[in-house]
Design a protein around this nucleic acid. Sequence first.
RNA 1: GGGGCAGUGGCGGAACGGUAGACGCCGCGGACUUAAAAUCCGCUGAGGGGAACCUCGUGUGAGUUCGAAUCUCACCUGCCCUACCA
Length: 930
Amino acid sequence: MADKYVPQEIEPRWSAQWERAGANRSVVDPKRPKHYALTMLPYPSGDLHIGHWYAMTPSDARARWMRMRGFNVLFPMGFDAFGLPAENAAIQRGIHPKVWTYRNIDNMRRQLRTMGAMFDWEREAVSSDPEYYRWSQWFFLQFYQHDLAYRQKAAVDFCPNCNTTLAREQVWGEDRHCERCGTPVIKKELEQWFFRTTRYADALLDHATIDWPERVETMQKNWIGRSEGAHVTFMTEQGDPIRVFTTRPDTLWGATFMVLAPEHPLVEKITTEPQRAEVETYIEAAAHKTEIDRTAEGKAKTGVFTGGYAINPVNDERIPIWVADYVLISYGSGAIMAVPAHDQRDFEFARQYGLPIRIVIQPDGVNDLNPDRMTEAWPGEGVMVNSGAFDGTSARASADGTKNEAVGVVTRWLEQQGIGHGAVNYRLRDWLISRQRYWGAPIPIVYCAECGTVPVPEEDLPVLLPEDVDFKPTGESPLRYDEEFLHTTCPQCGGPATRETDTMDTFMCSSWYQYRYLSPRYNQGPFDPQEGAYWLPVDQYTGGIEHATMHLMYTRFFTKAMRDCGIFAPTEAAARALGRDTAHLFDEPMLALFNQGMILGEPRDGDLIIAAGSFEGGKLNAVHIAVVPSLDGFQPAPGVDTVAGEVLSRKELVLNVQTPDGRSVVVDTDDSTIFEVPGVGEGATIEHIRYQLDVEKMSKSKGNVVAPDELVAAFGADAVRAYLMFAFRWEQGGPWDSQGIQGVVRWLNDIWALAQDSAENEPGDPAAERALRRKVHQTIKAVEDGLEHFAFNTAVAALMALRNTLEDVRRQGRVSRAVWGEAIRDLLLLMAPFTPFISEELWHRAGRGGSVHAQPWPVYDSTIAAEDEITLVVQVNGKVRDRIQVPASIGEEDAKRLALASAAVQRHLDGQSPRKVIYIGARGMVSIVV
RNA sequence: GGGGCAGUGGCGGAACGGUAGACGCCGCGGACUUAAAAUCCGCUGAGGGGAACCUCGUGUGAGUUCGAAUCUCACCUGCCCUACCA
């Protein structure tokens, strides 16, 4: 009889042993195929969350499996260590961001080690280390030299709570709130640094060479928002050009007015004196309106007439120019030609202000679209009318795939006339990387009165982040008030100069971490070309979907920009020397991507309570509240008002209680209310009352956080890993179920006993032995398929099923010691990626040499897995009517004969003769049609 | 408004167009125990029947097929993304 399975004893022992032996060290080995597995790096918030386990341990299982299959696997880990929470903690608790961050990293490193993941800690990278951000700064300089970084004054999104600017991608939702803190953003005119992501818009649209989820590709495509059309130049009466972008040049003859965005630079010039006051008031109001205000007004469009006019270049018509905030300065040129008959927004605006509507596309089958009676614009197909020489031109999709033939016809004409030309416009904007915060990598630029904007020379990097600063957020970078940091000398002329005081968006750091992992201490460049030549690119990336249009776009941009700056040149040369095909090797950072889902909080019932007090209106002012196990037999006491029911929610001192008849009653408490909660004793407070929780994200304030440390202490890391992989579809996630883990705990206990048992039944029964080996090989196949397709749940289920078989075999005791041992050996190998500790311990106890993790993966043999008897399923008119055990080798004739001979089948045939008999050998099925 | 994904037992979830509900949780019955926990055995989609067995059943309605959870169309519900994008 074996001792008890005590994961708390086994796991730390093997962790230490693996570390001593360097078991997870990955080194370049050109003789072996490489596999670079990567999971998104965590922010060091202080505590490892169950979500980290959910993201990382299945990735680890897959990486381990790849290693057992003979790949040289790199699976690194690090920390995305710059960012706002450190600064907020500093302000709230008076701890320096650096101290806070590195303390958290120490703790998380310890927690990560309990996971049993095959992280190669010698490759750990921390983005806030000077030796890391030195290279973040270096990349900035490379991009600056290649005209991929520029500084511009622009109306940028600013979060007044975080006191910093945000990239467009970090502004979320209808009310345009900050991605971090939820505060609605405002617009600010600031000089900021940008990366030219738009230069790569078309390249980023192309996902042909990568195997990424369709969902991510779609989100990126929508985000980039490519639209084809034309640029057309209108002239103001004063002779200033206004360039507009339109996807419908075929509707140019229907333009009855123009609209400029309030921020458009020409507004001031074209506004006439009588209109000036009104226009300025409107612009002022628009600038101060938040997005909430705008949507609160409903969809009603507002605007004012400038008094100015433009000439429509296609027909020389004089049309009024308006200002309206439905035209955005950030899209296209910030000016539009308005065609109310064929654009819904323009239509609404025209109706609002009584502007003319002219039909220029006549829909098919309608010969009289009337501008006075239309209730909405006609954006669809038809034929051009009221368009001079173009009348009669078809504005419909054509057979060759063109969406609208007239667009091409008109665009060619515009080009001949020199009025306009075909153009492509993108929704994507350049990436704003300046942040007015302290805890980030300083932008390596100095400003000199003589020389202007001067990049810091590479040899002067890193521009160190000073530690002794006052980092209260003011809306300007705290570095601005650090005199020592601010003042420097110009690298070009040696004269006095000031430093750029903004720091870089932390997405900059995480855009290239996959490269730093290769050689985190390398000091001749961001990464060692020798390492890169072997490991790059990342073969399998895993992480959440929430970064689809942020991190996952930035890192693709970064890699393409690095390639075009020549940064991969030495790596490419080294790769060629290794015999690798380098064509397109550095076009994309990650070849395959898989997104896992999220673990949600556990739904929970509220406490049942009986509250006594007095009613005031519909509200009970409670004097006494008792938590009870059941409301059965509850009788209201005479003389006092009582409420009995389940606590649905709590807001400070107020409870919302649902009574058994389904009513919901408000129960108010105060300091004098007495609480009686079983297990708490005297001094119970409202804090002890549990209320119902719906399924939602885990968060400390909701009290539904699952702490992995506690789970590991109670059940062991193997059980936590296996449960996370077993209980959910990985891509979907779901609510935590604290009872479900018992299933894997039982499984591991059973495995513990089985693996140390021996069958003393010599000689074994050949049929039973063949059956056992068959089941083992069927399991090999199932586990492989599961790992291959990220279906970890079915892989673990197959291993549990194998446990059930082994239990049966042990009970019946008909296999020899050798066959049993072989089954256990394969079982441990199959379990090793999922539950590395128990597998290693049992491997060791079985007296097998080396580490289970260094063994080759068992080879699946389909002949061993093949059944020698199958269940022949017989259908009559599509319904299963009989199941007959037959040899697997059965032929079509025999199967049909047996099927027709079946008593059950004969009964259902009811004397009729079959019209058709279908045999599906691969399915072991006969289908009889009457 | 636009785009995407998903609806299967009490629950998490399985099912190359071919035996629906693998595997597990919960629950129920039994064994062991002074008792409980743990463990072990059995049952566990719904309805009918003593039983063999029969009927119904994968959000709803149609269709394709010998055969549909799976494919097609329409609808309902939920979730996610996006949104004056010219």
